[in-house]
């Protein structure tokens, strides 16, 4: 009994169809998610000068952390640098749209918030922006996930999600983890 090359070719063709079908299924799911519930990777092309972050503009020290603007929008600004986040703890409200804005003055960092879809790189020269809504309160870890140097493993921050009733901005619209 000889090996039937035609039979093998048919089998391999069927396998190829199955694999293309599997890939198409995943592609369809990703395209559907991006078009219907608008689940896209964070995308924001916005330049910033990493040399002057700390001197002027949006990311000076007194402007970091969570702030509620006049229209009620919640924005959290964080500077990621070797080997810490500034600030290392931010407060955000539950069940409200929150915008995170990250910059780096030194090297490429990355971050994620455990248990959420927040996951982005922070590249010097660009502002990384993520919009999200937290549906339950709690303290969540936000570690750096891009190796940034010898202290990388110590680089971690916290996102403290509080119920709206406990989210109380001061007269400047600012909310911080530390008690005043």
């Amino acid at each position: 009994m000889a090996i039937d090359p035609l039979s093998n070719a048919r089998s391999e063709r069927r396998w190829a169809f199955a694999m293309v079908g599997a890939a198409m299924m995943m592609l369809f799911a990703i395209v559907w998610a991006s078009l219907s519930p608008h689940m896209n990777p964070p995308s924001n092309i916005e330049n910033v000068d990493p040399n002057t972050l700390h001197i002027a503009g949006e990311f000076t020290e007194d402007n970091l952390g969570t702030q509620v603007d006049a229209k009620g929008r919640v924005t959290t600004r964080i500077v990621t640098s070797q080997f810490s986040f500034a600030p290392e703890c931010v407060v955000v409200p539950q069940d409200m749209q929150v915008t995170f804005r990250f910059v780096s003055p030194d090297v490429i960092h990355g971050l994620l918030v455990v248990g959420t879809n927040i996951n982005t790189m922070v590249v010097p020269g660009y502002v990384s922006q993520v919009h999200t809504m937290f549906d339950k309160p709690g303290d969540m870890l936000m570690p750096c996930h891009e190796f940034c140097g010898l202290g990388h493993s110590q680089m971690v921050a916290h996102v403290r999600v509080v119920p709206i009733a406990d989210f109380k901005p001061d007269e400047n619209g600012r909310v911080a983890c530390a008690e005043h």
């Binding site: 599997a22 299924m25 995943m26 689940m39 896209n40 964070p42 879809n117 999200t132």
Partner: peptide, 24 residues
């Protein structure tokens, strides 16, 4: 093997990724 991989992918996608909501 591939079917198990696809099922695992679908479970994570449907029951972990999608419920966490959009971040873009």
């Amino acid at each position: 093997a591939v079917a198990l991989l696809l099922v695992a992918w679908a479970i994570i996608y449907l029951f972990v990724f999608l419920p966490r909501g959009p971040v873009g």
